[in-house]
Simulated scan of single mutants.
Amino acid sequence: MYIPAQINKPIGGHMKNFLRITMMLFIFTASSAGIFAQEKAAAPAKPEKPTLAVLPFVLEPRNIQINVNESEMKIQVVESEFADQLLQNLVKSRKFSVLERSFVEKIMKENKLTESEYCKPGEEQRIGKLLVADFLVVGHVDRVEFLVESKYIEITKETSIRLKGTMKVHFRVVETKSGKVVCANTITRKLDSRDIPAAERRNMTGGDYRDRLFTDCAVSASNYILEGIYPVKIASVQGEELVLNRGEGTGLVVGGQYEVYSQGDIVKDPDTGESIGSEETKIGLIEVTSVQQKFSKAKILKSEGVLEVGGICRQVEKKEKDVEPATPRATPGW
């Protein structure tokens, strides 16, 4: 077979240079891709939310009897359902990774921890480490009362029923790493059936009244916990309108007013050197105008300084006077 002489010629200098450059480019590209992949893999991970566990709230004394409209409420129902209500509200805040109650109970059972043990001061740190939780919420319920009053209305020939309820809980939040109590409080909430519209309470059962009281108390407790760890803050400023970093189910309501504070220097305990907070300066007053799923909006009512992103918002508590009517109401729903 005849082969042209040109094809049998050895590769010339230009061709060798071309192949050499091509090989160098290939090696450089592969090396760059490897370095980029390593840098991408080594990029810092997004900070995880702190983990929080809520233990069942023990009812004390244990021999108490609770009746709601002639039906007895089991002690276990009080303990578990209030903790569930509190847990749900903390989940809505999106600030924590909240452990499921079933998981908490499983760990407690495996380690043979009784209710009397996990409520003892000082035990929280050990339990928190078993649960691998950053924060632990523990507490007890020392008052759950329901009083049913009936009155015959001569004018309408009807018997009016009035139900009153009271719930009192104590709780504390412990940072498991240090054993430090981050915040603690006692909350008392009352329920009066006459404050509920007649059309709504007409079909309400004893369980409905119980749920309403538990929810009110749990919302107050969860808001206090959030305030102690993550207070409401300004997320963005859009002219005269502010966006707050809390949404539905976290205690913010339309019309609620908040004082805005700017943070100053950190204050330390001169004896221990421990940080005990930071200086705060009041710079304004705002009012919530809308509450959405993950954030809320507010308008500025008063400004004594520059309202900026990160400003702390503390709710203005309304003082309510408990005034009884001079004479009993002579209508159904008294």
Rank of each mutant, 00 (worst) to 15 (best):
L307S: 12
N89V: 11
R94Q: 14
C313N: 05
A330C: 08
M24W: 14
V260C: 06
E79F: 05
S296Y: 02
E175W: 03
M1R: 09
L244P: 09
K321S: 08
R329A: 12
Q6N: 15
V232W: 00
L25Y: 02
F171S: 14
G305Y: 04
S193W: 07
F57D: 06
V132C: 08
I286G: 06
R20I: 08
S236Q: 13
L226C: 12
E317N: 09
V254P: 00
S32K: 10
Q257W: 04
V181D: 01
P61V: 04
H170W: 14
P121S: 07
S178N: 08
L301I: 05
L213K: 07
G256D: 08
L131Q: 07
A41Y: 15
A45Y: 03
Y261T: 11
F57W: 01
L113P: 05
F36E: 11
N63Y: 02
V232K: 00
E324M: 15
E259P: 03
K297F: 05
L99H: 03
I187C: 08
A198G: 00
A33Q: 07
Q257P: 10
R62S: 14
E279R: 14
S178H: 01
R189S: 10
V309M: 01
Q238M: 06
Q85T: 09
G251W: 04
E72L: 15
V91G: 02
K40I: 04
K120N: 06
I266Q: 06
I161A: 03
E200A: 11
E304M: 07
A33S: 08
H140W: 10
G264W: 12
K168M: 14
Q293W: 11
R212K: 10
R246W: 07
L285M: 11
T114P: 01
N223M: 13
I66M: 08
K268N: 11
I153G: 07
K299E: 13
S71Q: 14
E145Y: 11
Y152Q: 00
S296M: 03
K92I: 02
Y118F: 15
G12T: 06
L213S: 09
I196D: 00
T166M: 09
G333D: 05
T215Q: 14
F214P: 06
F146N: 04
K299P: 05
G122K: 00
G277R: 04
A45Q: 11
E110H: 12
S31A: 15
L147H: 09
H170F: 12
E240T: 15
K321W: 10
R329N: 09
K177G: 09
K46F: 04
E175V: 02
L25T: 01
M24I: 10
L136H: 02
K268T: 15
C183D: 02
F26E: 07
G34P: 02
K46L: 09
